[in-house]
C-alpha cells in the first residue's frame, strides 16, 4: 500500500490531531460524560487506521510497531486486572478503593477513570492489531 492522493493526505494530516485529542478526551471523561474506554479506544484505533489508509501501512507501523501493539495489548489488560486485584486492599476483588472525589470533576468516581484508561489502551491495541492482521494479510493462491 502506497497511500492515497495528496488531497486525502493533506486532509488526514489536518484531522488526525483533532481526532486523537477527541478520543483521549472521550477516554478521560468517560465516567462523567457519554463515552468511555471502549468508545475512546475505538476512536484511537481509528486514528491509526486512518493513517494506514492514507499514508500506507509503513508510516503507521513506524509509529507503533507490531511488537509494540502486542505489548500495549497485554499492558492494557494487565493494568485493568491490576486495578481489580488492588481492590483486595479495600477488602474485596474490584473494590472501589480510591477516594471518590467531588462529583462531576475529572478526578472523581474512584477507580473508574483508571479502568477507562486501561480499557482504552486495550481496545485501541486489539482493534488496531485486528485491522493490521487483516490488512497485512496477503492471499497466496496455492493449487
Amino acid at each position: 500500500m502506497k497511500g492515497m492522493t495528496l488531497i486525502v493526505k493533506t486532509i488526514t494530516r489536518l484531522l488526525l490531531g483533532f481526532i486523537f485529542v477527541f478520543s483521549v478526551s472521550i477516554i478521560l471523561f468517560g465516567h462523567i460524560t457519554p463515552g468511555g474506554g471502549f468508545a475512546g479506544g475505538v476512536m484511537l484505533a481509528c486514528v491509526f487506521i486512518l493513517l494506514v489508509l492514507a499514508f500506507g501501512k509503513k508510516t503507521a507501523l513506524d509509529i507503533v510497531s507490531e511488537k509494540a501493539i502486542s505489548i500495549w495489548d497485554s499492558v492494557g489488560s494487565l493494568s485493568f486486572l491490576e486495578i481489580a486485584l488492588l481492590g483486595f486492599f479495600g477488602g474485596f476483588f474490584f473494590k472501589d478503593f480510591f477516594s471518590k472525589g467531588s462529583p462531576l470533576k475529572l478526578f472523581s468516581g474512584g477507580t473508574i477513570l483508571w479502568s477507562n484508561i486501561s480499557i482504552g489502551i486495550k481496545v485501541f491495541a486489539s482493534l488496531f492489531a485486528a485491522f493490521m492482521a487483516l490488512a497485512i494479510f496477503r492471499v497466496r493462491r496455492e493449487r
Binding site: A130, A133, L134, F137, V139, R140, R141, E142, R143
Partner: peptide, 15 residues
C-alpha cells in the same frame, strides 16, 4: 474478526 481471518485463511488454502 476471527471469522474473517478464518475466511481469509480458507481462501488461501482452497482458492
Amino acid at each position: 474478526v476471527l471469522a474473517i481471518v478464518l475466511c481469509l485463511r480458507l481462501y488461501e488454502k482452497y482458492g
